[in-house]
Amino acid sequence: MKAKVLLSLILLCGGLAAPLARAGDAVPATPAVPPACELPSYLLSSESQLPKVGEAIKSGKPLEILVIGSRSTTIPASEDASYPARMQAILKDKLPPSEAVHVSVEIQSKKTAEEAATTFVKLMEAKRPTLVIWQTGTVDAIRAIDPDDFRGAVTDGVAALQNAGADVVLMNLQYSPRTETMISVPPYLDNMRVVAQEHDVPLFDRFAIMRQWNDQGQFDLFSPSRGPELAKQVHDCLGRALAQFVIDAAHLGPAQQQN
């Protein structure tokens, strides 16, 4: 009898948990977002903040953003459609026209987090960005780098970027259902979340966002198509989401936004 009660309790809790998790689904990020890009708001919010970005915009200084990433930060042969370029466009749109926004991209293909982090000091001296968006984890997951070493490398990298005086956003891996049986992603997602928590850095959860789109049927990420159309659309949505994420984490009031 007791066992039955326990079991039904567990099942009940399970049943409650499922609808709760979807409670936020209906809320679009902003009214202007195309329907394909819609996301529940929790995927775009972070407790951590970007004080330097907020300051720069409030005081009218130019916003210099550096995106450091591996090959999933670009689309081969159509860089203009990749998410950093899209983010720049959206930010320019949303921020006051007086605000100068410039996004530069540093692609470090086939480099692990550790290898990428060694370049950070020089890179920061050369570019002096207000905000660095560091996309990492994919190469480490493919090469099955020890997750502890990975965490150490990301920690060092984030510290280096912060010491150079920039705000940091971490971006994790893509959701790639085709290679799910081949690349073990969870340890790298978990460790990036841990580093983000420890260093109070906003984490842009690209994996969860793309999975949401796939599960809700907005994009078919299983598609084997060779054309760049799908990639362009996904990057457009990622750029929009990222722009929104940055604006929210910088705590910009309506006064600093166009809409």
Partner: peptide
């Protein structure tokens, strides 16, 4: 399975993941 995916799947969104 992996050989099949390697030969049939060329989505430019995932060029990096195909490094596996």
């Amino acid at each position: 399975e992996i050989s099949y995916v390697a030969t049939s799947f060329e989505n430019p969104l995932y060029t990096e993941e195909m490094g596996i």
